[in-house]
Amino acid sequence: MRSAPTGRQLRLGAELRKLRERAGLTSTQAAQLLGIKQNQVSNMEAGRHGVSPDRLRTIACRYDCSNKALVEGLVAMTPDRKRGWWEEYRELLPNALLDLAELEHHAQSLRAANTARIPGLLQTHDYAREIFRQAVIELSPPEIEHRLSFRIKRQAILYREDNPVPYEAIIHEAALRMEVGGSSVARQQLQHILDMSERGHITLRSITFSVGAYPGSGQSIYYAHGPVPQLDTVYLDQSHGPAFLDTEAQLQKYRTLFERVGAVALGPEKTRNLIHGVMREL
């Protein structure tokens, strides 16, 4: 029995609950159908009890779920005996950050839209350090170092030799022009994102000041694609704490939002030209 399920374990449990509810079953009825106790159903749906691939397929069959792609996507979320690298930071950093790293590790692709800063996966060491130094709630030097090393390790998904995660970043001109850490750090940061944009799996786009107001301009959005659309996740980094969104209505809202943001963004080549122009002004 798990006392503190991870975000991925909680999501799997929530998806099992959705399957049961779509089948029109109460937890008691589901337990009878599966030949287990009602509290076992509740514990699986709360992420407190693991589910094997065979058990999950049995559950999907008993719940009359005919979406094979969804079932196999859920099977892929069943417990992995290997501990992810992020577990090294448990007790050192907030659990939400560990859940974010796990989400990124398993994502099929990632999309980010940022207004005021460069997305975390594209930040340089010096840029990220300055961001952490400016945190609203002051961080101790050790915590800054933990967060810094954690952020750099997260970026490894973009450097994998086998199957690097496809990544698209839409960055507002305001973030490109903000001299975080001074002009030297800012210039190095811009050069870094230019270099990263040359990688085949990374797409870099920008929104210029001339666009004016646009949908979603007041927030940073991070969208992780799962193996099927139902298993996508939206991550919002808010001042009062991060939020993971995964209801059907929420996912559709942010898919539409990304489409509208993308419609006003420059293409990759014009974005690189803009960045070169900003660098010349530093």
Rank of each mutant, 00 (worst) to 15 (best):
A4W: 04
T6S: 15
T6V: 12
G7L: 06
R8F: 01
R11W: 05
R11E: 14
L12M: 03
G13F: 01
A14N: 03
A14M: 01
R22D: 08
T28G: 14
Q38D: 12
N39H: 08
N39L: 03
Q40S: 14
N43R: 15
A46E: 05
G47K: 00
G47P: 11
R55T: 09
D64Q: 13
S66I: 09
K68H: 12
A69M: 11
V71R: 08
E72H: 08
L74K: 10
M77N: 07
T78L: 01
D80C: 09
D80T: 13
R83L: 12
W85Y: 08
W86P: 13
W86D: 11
W86N: 10
E87F: 08
E88G: 04
R90E: 13
E91Q: 11
E91L: 10
L92R: 14
L92N: 13
P94I: 05
P94W: 01
P94N: 02
N95A: 13
L97A: 08
A101N: 00
E102R: 09
L103C: 03
H106Q: 11
H106C: 07
A107L: 01
A107C: 05
S109R: 12
A112P: 00
A113C: 10
A113V: 04
N114T: 15
N114C: 13
T124R: 00
D126N: 09
E130H: 09
F132K: 06
R133W: 03
V136S: 14
I137L: 09
L139R: 11
L139E: 10
P141N: 10
P141M: 02
P141F: 02
E143S: 12
E143D: 15
I157E: 11
L158E: 07
R160F: 03
E161L: 06
E161K: 07
N163P: 04
P164L: 00
V165L: 13
A169Q: 01
I170M: 06
I171D: 10
V180K: 00
V185N: 00
L190T: 01
L194Q: 07
L194V: 13
M196L: 14
S197Y: 01
S197R: 06
T203R: 11
T203F: 06
S206Y: 06
S206E: 07
I207P: 00
S210H: 10
P215F: 03
P215N: 07
G216Q: 07
G218R: 04
S220D: 13
I221M: 08
Y223G: 04
A224D: 14
P227S: 14
Q230M: 10
Q230T: 12
L231V: 04
T233A: 14
V234K: 06
V234F: 02
V234E: 01
H240A: 05
G241V: 11
L245T: 12
T247N: 04
K253F: 13
R255S: 10
F258M: 15
F258K: 14
R260M: 05
V264N: 07
A265Y: 06
P268Q: 10
E269T: 15
K270A: 11
T271I: 12
T271C: 12
R272N: 09
N273V: 03
N273I: 02
H276P: 08
V278A: 08
M279P: 15
R280H: 07
R280T: 08
E281F: 04
